[in-house]
Amino acid sequence: MPTRLVDHDLLDEEQRQQLSELQILPEQKRWSGDIAGALHTLTSAPCPGIKGFALLDDERPVAFLLLKRPPFLPPWADEKAATLHALQVDSRQQGRGYGRACLRALPAASRAVWPRVRQLMLSVDSDNLAAMGLYLSEGWVDSGTAYRGRVGYERRLSLKI
């Protein structure tokens, strides 16, 4: 599968349209939101502290994620980290390893836009077993800390890069 994680700013108009058409399963929206919300976060007030990335397969978007830096970090994050948000794989493309491909490409992508970042962090609902399993299998470390999130209890995970 020839995939690559690409900065949203480098997508052409056709790819941006295709990205806006990603479909997220209703049961996953409670954790990751939907593509319209993620793109709104990215494009409503463009700034250097929020970056969007699309995973392309044969030049067609199949997944999307956001990275944030200060001053947009959530309160649970280390100020020297970048945080991962809104990881979404098109529901029609799930089960093909695209989520894993995003995570594997993420360290290089984050270093390309923010060279001083040495740690990635994320927050995941403790009931989202599929996501927890994926992150842990890709080397993310559970801090052991849980806090009350908007949906349920959240776990903080980190990855040194």
Rank of each mutant, 00 (worst) to 15 (best):
L5P: 00
V6Y: 04
D9A: 15
L10E: 13
D12M: 02
E13H: 09
Q17R: 05
L19W: 14
L19G: 12
Q23G: 15
I24N: 08
L25C: 12
P26T: 14
P26G: 14
E27N: 14
R30Q: 14
S32F: 12
D34C: 03
D34V: 09
S44H: 04
A45F: 13
P46C: 11
F53I: 05
L55I: 09
L56M: 07
D58I: 01
V62K: 02
A63S: 06
R69N: 12
P70L: 03
P71K: 02
F72V: 08
F72W: 10
L73F: 09
K80C: 06
A86W: 00
Q88G: 14
Q88K: 12
V89H: 01
D90K: 00
D90G: 03
G97N: 05
G99C: 07
G99D: 10
R100Q: 12
R100T: 07
A101M: 01
C102L: 03
R104I: 07
A105I: 00
P107F: 00
A108H: 05
S110Y: 02
S110F: 00
R111T: 11
A112D: 12
P115D: 01
R116W: 00
Q119E: 09
A130I: 07
A131K: 01
A131R: 01
G133W: 11
G133Y: 09
L136W: 09
L136C: 13
S137H: 15
W140T: 04
W140E: 05
V141M: 12
V141F: 11
D142V: 07
G144H: 15
Y147F: 15
R148E: 15
V151I: 15
S158P: 10
L159C: 12
I161V: 07
